[in-house]
Each structure stands twice: as C-alpha cells, then as structure tokens.
Amino acid sequence: DEIHIHFNGVTIEFRGLTEEAKKALEEAIKRGASEEELKELARRLIK
C-alpha cells in the first residue's frame, strides 16, 4: 500500500501507511502544508 503526493511538480512517495496516516497527510495537504512539513509528518507517521 503506497501513496503518491504530487506537490509543486515533485512526487513524494510513501509506502506502508495506515489509513489514519493517509488521512493525516491528506488533511495536511488540504490546509496547505509545505513539502518539508509533509515529509516530517510522514516520518512521524511511519515510525
């Protein structure tokens, strides 16, 4: 299970995320999180 985020022309790929983690990332994107914020969020979620 993986998710691809297209962000300002950059694709960020995450693997092994739970549904909750995906929802958290989607919410962050909707509120306009920066690419760095998304990566940091993903790091926290994957652990």
Rank of each mutant, 00 (worst) to 15 (best):
S34P: 04
G32T: 01
A28R: 02
L25S: 00
K30F: 14
I3A: 07
F7S: 03
V10F: 06
E26S: 10
E19T: 11
A21F: 09
R44I: 09
L45M: 09
H4F: 09
G16D: 14
R43W: 14
E2A: 14
E13H: 15
G9H: 02
I5E: 01
V10G: 07
L25I: 10
A24S: 09
E20T: 11
K23Q: 11
N8I: 04
I3R: 05
A24F: 11
A33F: 08
L25G: 00
E20F: 12
E2D: 10
T11N: 03
A42K: 01
G16Y: 12
I12H: 03
A42S: 03
L41Q: 00
E20H: 08
T11G: 02
L38E: 00
K23N: 10
K47M: 15
S34W: 03
G32K: 03
H4M: 06
I3G: 08
R44V: 08
E13D: 07
I5T: 02
I3S: 05
H6D: 06
I12D: 02
E37Y: 06
E20M: 06
S34C: 03
G16T: 06
R43M: 14
D1F: 15
K39R: 13
A33G: 03
A24W: 08
G16N: 11
E2N: 12
H6C: 10
E35H: 11
F14H: 02
E27V: 07
E20W: 14
L25M: 06
K23I: 11
K22N: 03
I12S: 01
N8R: 04
L25F: 11
E36T: 10
E37I: 04
L45F: 14
F7T: 03
I3L: 11
T18I: 04
E2G: 11
A24G: 05
R31V: 05
F7K: 02
A24I: 14
S34H: 04
E35D: 08
E26C: 13
K22G: 03
T11F: 09
K23F: 13
E27N: 10
K47N: 14
T18Y: 03
K39E: 05
E35P: 12
T18P: 12
K22S: 04
L38K: 00
N8T: 03
I3V: 10
H4L: 08
T11S: 06
L45H: 03
F7P: 01
A24M: 13
I29A: 07
E19P: 12
T18D: 10
F14E: 01
L45Q: 01
D1E: 09
K22Q: 10
G32F: 08
E40C: 06
E37L: 04
R15Y: 14
E27P: 00
L41P: 00
K47F: 15
D1V: 14
K23W: 14
T18R: 09
H6M: 07
F7M: 12
F7I: 14
E20G: 10
I5W: 10
K47T: 14
T18F: 04
K47R: 11
E27F: 15
T11I: 13
R15N: 08
H6V: 12
R44N: 05
I29H: 06
L17P: 01
I5C: 08
E20L: 09
F14L: 12
R43E: 08
R31I: 05
H6N: 08
A21S: 10
I3P: 06
T11P: 02
